[in-house]
Amino acid sequence: MGLPDSSQDLSSEMEVDAFRKIFPLRFFERHLSESLRPDGRPLGKARDTIVNLGLVSSADGSALAKIGYTTMLAAIRMEVMTPSTDSPDEGCIAVEFHMPPICSPTVRPGRPADAAPVISKRLLDTISSCNMIDLKELCLVSGKAAWMGYLDIYCLDADGALFDAALLSAVAAFSNLQIPVVALNDNGRIVAITGEEKQDNASITEKEAVNKERRKLTLKNIPFSLTCILHKNYILADPTAEEESIMDTLVTVVLDSSDQIVSFNKSGGNALAHTSAIKSCVELAKKRGNELKQILGEMDVD
């Protein structure tokens, strides 16, 4: 981008695709000045979003979330563990975000992507700090047994706004989660009850079911997030991978169901976030939160 003047001269003669490759920033700024983005979206609009539930049959809860081309597959497996002595009546949740080499040309096998552990940590922080899940609900026998939820999120296609899509898939997977039936056997150990045994009522009473029927978790407070790009005076909601690679100031706002801010993250970048810019990001996130609530709400009806 060292030759802004020559690019101006060339722009009338060059092909659009070549111009986009050689002067990406100028290409985008030209669009932004018209309040439009190359994919035809207005600046503040997020891409089409789809959520599907229960796609992984080997997991206790799963969901696929698609924002534009960005695709996330989340699955939860429940295991019984001994709770720690600090919190004997609480279960635990582990979150891992994976970027397999299939999702992006920049990820190679054997070298995990730098972004993956960062997003893992931010997801765990968000999920635990907004009190979405009451960990006491995961308790089976106080001090003896509790549920450990392993949430694994796989990025199948990386096209920007990875955190937003990952959080959406995680929330949807938790809403799909069915906690398996388990019982306490004579030796005081927890055993799983499969479908056949369940019909045999005698065996259940004998074994003293701890968790009598498959149940769902109550999600108290659902977080929704929106990532925006700050570039000069413009705010671009829900960026694509191309936009993220050109303009590097990203702001992620996470709001809960009652529009309270759960987390706000601006990690470096060239642009400074002014108070007004932050306010508009939060406004956009509120609007997006309502959209996502609707999308998740539609699924519950089905």
């Binding site: 992984v56 080997s58 997991a59 799963s62 597959l73 699955a75 497996r77 891992e96 994976h98 397999p100 080499p101 096998p109 054997g110 392993y150 694994d152 796989y154």
Partner: peptide, 18 residues
Amino acid sequence: CNVSYTTFASPSAGQGTD
């Protein structure tokens, strides 16, 4: 070529590995 498995690929579970 590279083939990898997700951690939830099979019910017996384990680490998703190459």
